[in-house]
Nucleic acid binder design. Structure first.
Lengths: 146, 146
DNA sequence: CTTGACCTTCCAACCGTGGGAAACCCTACA
DNA sequence: TGTAGGGTTTCCCACGGTTGGAAGGTCAAG
């Protein structure tokens, strides 16, 4: 199984497979005589594991821990659960932060009549530079734009 | 007012002020004879505007539009409102995505007894690679980890 | 005149992903 | 046997937004 087939089977792009190998998240793949990477079903399964973990928002750093637990047959499920709940915590913090932004923006949009005239409470708020009713104390940098 | 004072007064770090200038978000600042950047209250206000917009999650690209509207005295408040509501839409999409992750993780954590034994439905789910009950169809890359 | 706190520019890193170039490899088909 | 097309390899670059640091110039107080 070469990298393209492994990519298709796992849902992880070939680019990312090489990247994960380069950062040591997955072990160095075997090679054919001509230098092509070769993947076994076990390795494809590991890639699917990574893919699914990414889909659940885990950063690569945490996936490293998850993979270690996955490989460790003497693991304690409590450790896995802890990681999952930490992830929930982090996600919830970000959700709350974004919800505060949404609330502020919605409020501002509500009081903006949105017509042809230039008067706009949204711009007035931005200009004032003071936090609105639901705004954040300090920007934690958790929210990224796409 | 030099860059450090402008940073303190606006809440935007000196580093970021230089960055915003380099990407053309703000006009080139004036300079003293010795090359120090100089800022007027108007420019500090613009920086505060930017800071507040970032706090509300606007990407720099959108802030450019907001600043243009801010400067344009013949603007139509409808344009500002549209930008705000687009931002709300984007944020809500991300929130829903993250909420789906949270729901999945919470469910998995609920059915994991979290004790000293190795059996763990969380790892089993990750291994299966199939989307759980609340999972996302495709990862849109909207959610970043801190 | 020195000291420390500022400022300048430049370069690198973070995270995860995609794009692309230049070169090589493999298979199918003529 | 040649060739065309799809792989594959490594490499560097870009994104967004922010921070860090190094090397050097400047300002104000002592």
């Amino acid at each position: 199984m070469n990298i393209g087939e492994a990519a298709k089977a796992s849902g992880v792009s070939a680019k990312m497979i090489r990247y994960y190998e380069s950062i040591g998240l997955i072990p160095t793949a075997g090679r054919t005589g001509s230098g092509y990477r070769v993947y076994s079903p076990t390795e494809v399964q590991m890639l699917r594991f990574i893919r699914r973990s990414r889909d659940l928002g885990f950063p690569v750093e945490k996936i490293e821990e998850l993979l270690a637990l996955w490989r460790d047959r003497t693991r304690q499920s409590a450790d896995v659960k802890r990681l999952a709940l930490e992830q929930v915590d982090g996600l919830e913090r970000k959700v709350h932060e974004m919800q505060a932004m949404i609330d502020t923006l919605r409020h501002l949009a509500d009081v903006c009549c949105g017509d042809h005239r230039p008067d706009c409470p949204i711009l007035a708020d931005l200009e004032a530079g003071q936090s609105g009713p639901t705004a954040q104390r300090r920007p934690t940098g958790l929210v990224q734009q796409s």
